[in-house]
Amino acid sequence: MLAMALGVSGLLLLILCAESDCWRQDAKDPLSSVGLSVRCRGLWSECIFDNVADLWTCDIPISYLSEHPAVFVATRVLVILTGFLTLAAMPLFIAGMKCTKLIRDKVLWKYKFSLAAGTLFLLGGLAGAIAVLWYGIDTVQKYKLEVTLGIPGVTYELGCAYWMAAGGAACACAAGILLIAASSLDAQSLRKDQSPRFPPPVSKGTYL
């Protein structure tokens, strides 16, 4: 049940962070705006919230296939891959649970389904972790460079959607590790149950 809660939480966080437009938020320093607006940059668009007019507007690029920085393209692909792998792991996880009756009297199949679900969770979590790490490093480097050189304009730092993505990747990794560990324990107990409890009788030869 803990793995289920972690898997569902990770999937929800990944969906929210993919739809959010606040992976980067304007930093509160002298190089940023004066507080009249809040700027956010996401993987798909850039948005501005006007505090005076109480209006939220987003600038969506004309084509997603146009040239973009490598970190943006890689993060998009990895976040989508993480969500797909996490979503694909859920049916296998439910089928492999001991409390479900989708597969009756098939202990070996339940073990295989649980192991496959754990592997998908772990792969999805690792893909999300790579995306989060790469995007975070790029954001921090740009922030330090703009502050050090005193580049005019808006300076961005990590926003709320980034931390949701980090939490989703962590939940997916934790769910995968728990499922793989539980499947390994089930496999050991299954081997013990299938092993003969008594040694086979030794045939005695006859002597003439």
Rank of each mutant, 00 (worst) to 15 (best):
L108W: 07
L120I: 08
T206Q: 10
S20H: 03
T139P: 00
A187I: 06
W163A: 08
E67Y: 08
C171Y: 05
F198N: 10
Y156E: 07
S63D: 11
A181Y: 13
C47N: 13
E157D: 15
S63C: 01
P91D: 09
D29Y: 00
A172T: 11
P30R: 05
A3H: 11
G150M: 07
S63K: 08
G118K: 02
C173Y: 02
G168N: 06
M4E: 11
L78P: 02
T75R: 02
E46I: 01
A165K: 03
P196H: 06
P200D: 13
P152F: 04
K98M: 06
S189N: 14
V38H: 00
A131F: 10
F72P: 03
S183D: 06
A116E: 04
A53G: 02
L14G: 11
V202W: 07
L190P: 04
A174S: 15
Y162W: 15
V79P: 01
E67H: 05
L120C: 04
V202L: 15
S195P: 00
S183R: 03
I137S: 11
I151H: 12
T100V: 12
C173G: 06
R39Y: 14
L2T: 14
T100S: 15
I177F: 14
D193Y: 11
D29R: 04
C160P: 03
F72Y: 13
K144I: 11
K101H: 14
F49E: 12
G168F: 07
